[in-house]
Design a binder for these strands. Sequence first.
DNA 1: GCGCTTTCTGAATGCGCTTTCACGCTAGGA
DNA 2: TCCTAGCGTGAAAGCGCATTCAGAAAGCGC
Lengths: 345, 345
Amino acid sequence: MDDRPHVTLEDVAREAQVSLATASRALNGTTKVRSDLRERVLAAAEQLAYTPNAHAQALAGGAHRTVGVICHDVSDPYFAGISRGVMRAADEAGLLVMLASTFRDPQREIAYISMLRAQRASAILLVGSGFEDREWERALAAEIEPYQRGGGQVAVVSRHRTLRVDSVQPENREGAAQLARTLTAQGHRRFAVLAGPRALTTVVDRIRGFREGLAEAGVELAEHDIVEAAFTRDGGHAAMSELLARGFDATCVFAVTDVMAMGALAALREAGRSVPEDISLAGFDDIPVVRDLAPPLTTVALPLEELGEKVMELAVRDNRGKRSRILRMPGTVVVRESTRPIDCA
Amino acid sequence: MDDRPHVTLEDVAREAQVSLATASRALNGTTKVRSDLRERVLAAAEQLAYTPNAHAQALAGGAHRTVGVICHDVSDPYFAGISRGVMRAADEAGLLVMLASTFRDPQREIAYISMLRAQRASAILLVGSGFEDREWERALAAEIEPYQRGGGQVAVVSRHRTLRVDSVQPENREGAAQLARTLTAQGHRRFAVLAGPRALTTVVDRIRGFREGLAEAGVELAEHDIVEAAFTRDGGHAAMSELLARGFDATCVFAVTDVMAMGALAALREAGRSVPEDISLAGFDDIPVVRDLAPPLTTVALPLEELGEKVMELAVRDNRGKRSRILRMPGTVVVRESTRPIDCA
DNA sequence: GCGCTTTCTGAATGCGCTTTCACGCTAGGA
DNA sequence: TCCTAGCGTGAAAGCGCATTCAGAAAGCGC
């Protein structure tokens, strides 16, 4: 860009016949300016359609009013809910939110953080970026720590082992355990799990919690009953299809996310199995659409928007020197019609 | 931020024992630098965890590598699809994408554009920002035109009457007409429409097209058969509920967006009406989830990701002085199970 | 060995803005 | 009336970087 140069503060000052400093002060209202001068400056700015150059402002020590949010995919309903919350909180704080999708590529995640650092964003929010991978953790730390040292705020949604950051953590483990209790109480004894990549902490936590909840009823979950697939609708579809092809005796299937559950539901429908008559299905997250499925999905509701708001608030709050805070957000089991009580086999 | 100052190029230069200019050149590779010096600079930068200040770079004349995308709501699946396309194209072009939600508030839309101007973003993408409102058009033009004069690129998804910008336009009118033809061919003669705010060009176009398609079969759509509601799932639910409460004799309901159709479907289910046995239902957009509804939704498929890619490409391509281009993207009617042929009444 | 061109380097300039700093002005107290 | 505060103003410094410009070093032919 920059064919024709932009209108600058100097242009405004000249037009208003005042000094550059006065123009700046009139526009920002930081110091008292004689009212007739202010009028002149404002009028000139208006007339010239002046917009301050944010880069120059930032460089000259003005506040950085932008936060970056990095997620796997903005079009994932799970993140969509969170982003609503983030945006609302950001709006209140007068911040501009930059969203970026990594598509689960750790490299890209690092690259985006680096860009945000370069922009001197006032905060970086990582949503669900938990990989259980030593090398990645190191690379991430190598970006995050200098950023924090430079005064940048970082907050994450999810669990992080190594990073020293504020975080909002959905209680995946306890939520899944609670779901397991609900299902065993309905009489289910044989389960299958549709899992996302085991490298993700979210997946690991949910499976572990589910297992623990099951164990309380004396039910065991064999490794064989866990099918791993992509963390998407189609992944859920594929995993369910595999299960169907292989043959299984579970009365209830737990998909670790609602999005995967949707794929599973489609696969079941295609296979002529009806839910919940033939088999029960449960998900996790309670993204908005699942209540509109047929049957509406039993799931663990996470307060997604609230998650977003909280993480934003953590990032905005001034916490220099203080130790990192952790906000745990419990989930709530929502029983809908995709699961049903059965007679104990 | 900026507790402790950031590591600057000067620090790197000092550490590497070269001049600032040499350090800059070594890092950017713009000019040849003696290899041992380059090594030293790179090592120093690495060691100090140096990240260039994007503001300073921008101010000093470096390229602006960021584009802003403004939409109603990033969590709307319609936009989510588009954003995927935008991100992919941006990624190829090496651009950083800033997303923002206006929540259909014209004021906020203007504010975001202003912020993007201030950031000197290299391009601004407006997704579906068509209001039929003179005053808003004026305010928008007052932001957009100076931005363009300054060399900024602007491209939009949707129709714009007054703005002189490149645009990608889904063929709402023709798509809706095509849908109407399909439905009348199925034997439907009496329709109701669930509409969003009539101030939106998208809504207006779809209704008009639907009417035109109907007219070809000699069917008329009375104003009375159009229910206006919010452009959301709940809006669709409310509109359908109103229709049900009021009593109506349509055999087929057309919701102007899939999101609204989802709400309508829920309302019908709650009312004990089955789709398509009791009544047929059609939507528009073909957002991913609707194929997983029960019944899967008949709709008009828009190539959402492609829309996003195209609009990004328009914004990236250099088009100074050239006249604005319009890319029309046709929709395709997808008949699923939410509509069924009926005997002519 | 001399003068020339070719490379590469460092000092200095400026991007547009905020913010000190110092000065001129008016108002108030002596 | 004179002096001191106090308020507003303009000049200027500097934020971190890319880049121009001039000069130093190195390479070449004679």
